[in-house]
Nucleic acid binder design. Structure first.
Lengths: 193, 193
DNA sequence: CCGAATTTGGAACGACCGTTCAAATGAAAG
DNA sequence: CTTTCATTTGAACGGTCGTTCCAAATTCGG
């Protein structure tokens, strides 16, 4: 029998994801990826396929770790209303942290590739849609407990919250100012009060 | 004396702007630009400098035509409150039109280049800041005429409106659905009512 | 140990990247 | 009509792109 892979393909994909996250798809070269992933070109192609395939895997990984897992944790930890507010608080904290300028890979990708790559557009669109569904679901539950006033229409408010969140993600890259981000978060809170 | 330029450098820059707008900076090659601008490579470099310099001129042109001129027209045509609502209405109309999937070059650029190019970041940041100032200024005037309720804080609400607008610009590329965009616009209206 | 099987790192490929440059072009001054 | 010279054109440059391929390396069943 031959041997097993010597590198941890999961950790390696993580490195690729971080590179795409920081620099975008087009601006990240295969040489950049070879350097930062720490494996040879041959291993890279054998394990992950070509650049686009690798990117899609990295994007899926991001979606899992930084969207599904994240919202699942918030939903488990906090009350419906608090989970929504925590989304905005944690985005602010991340944006003002040292490595926060990267924003959100899903949003970055929405603008760079969605118009020209159907498969990528599908992943991005579904991620955004499920984020909207998270907001809507939390709002429905919060209304039953009285945490959110009756006049709030979950479907409508969820869309507005998503727009505010996406806007904050753009500001994180273009104008990472605490006052700006905090004001947006405050308006999100006002929207559900 | 030698001759004058034979091509209209203004119309040519417009073509370059459209190419960058549709495909982004990295994905648009000099060959693409030569093809769509309709001039030779030498003329291109002699007139506009290198790729980055050309992009900055295209970005400045976009900022002038699709942000300054646009908001100036709205401010002249409509009442303060109506001008704000018109911003959102016109973005929706543009997003659902045939060539609407391009979104906004300033927002696209914010994510692609702001983190890695200071000069570009400055143009983007100033454009967003002046858009926020437009909202804030309209809100101040609208409050004096009673078009907008007293409890609205112009500085805070302007930031939220900007976030909603930027969010819509992202949706235009990733999820160009009338219902989604209309809901966001409706929440913008609710924010100033 | 050995040989089979598979990964590995790096050399090599053609294509395209952004950029430069020199020769051809043609309107205007004399 | 000749001279002049900036504009124009497209060929050409070195470098880097994404990708392929192969010889060397390595581990595990025999």
């Amino acid at each position: 029998m031959p041997w097993q892979k010597t590198f941890d393909s999961d950790a390696t994909l993580q490195k690729a994801m971080e590179a795409f996250w920081a620099r975008g798809y087009e601006a990240t070269s295969m040489q950049d990826l070879v350097d930062c992933m720490g494996i040879g070109r041959g291993s890279l192609y054998a394990t992950f396929g070509d650049k686009r395939t690798l990117f899609i895997q990295a994007l899926r990984r991001y979606d899992q770790r930084h969207r599904r897992d994240w919202t699942a944790r918030l939903a488990a930890e906090a009350s419906p209303r608090a989970a929504i507010l925590a989304v905005f608080d944690e985005v602010i904290q991340g944006a003002l942290a040292g490595d926060g300028r990267k924003g959100c890979l899903l949003v970055n990708t929405a603008l760079e590739l969605s118009a020209h790559d159907e498969q990528v557009a599908g992943i991005v669109s579904q991620g955004l849609t499920e984020m909207e569904a998270f907001f809507a679901d939390r709002l429905v539950r919060a209304k039953t407990t009285g945490e959110v006033p009756e006049h709030v229409i979950p479907g409508e408010t969820a869309k507005a919250l998503l727009a505010l969140l996406v806007g904050m993600r753009v500001f994180t890259r273009a104008r990472p100012e605490r006052a700006l981000l905090a004001s947006v978060a405050a308006q999100a809170q006002a929207l559900i009060s």
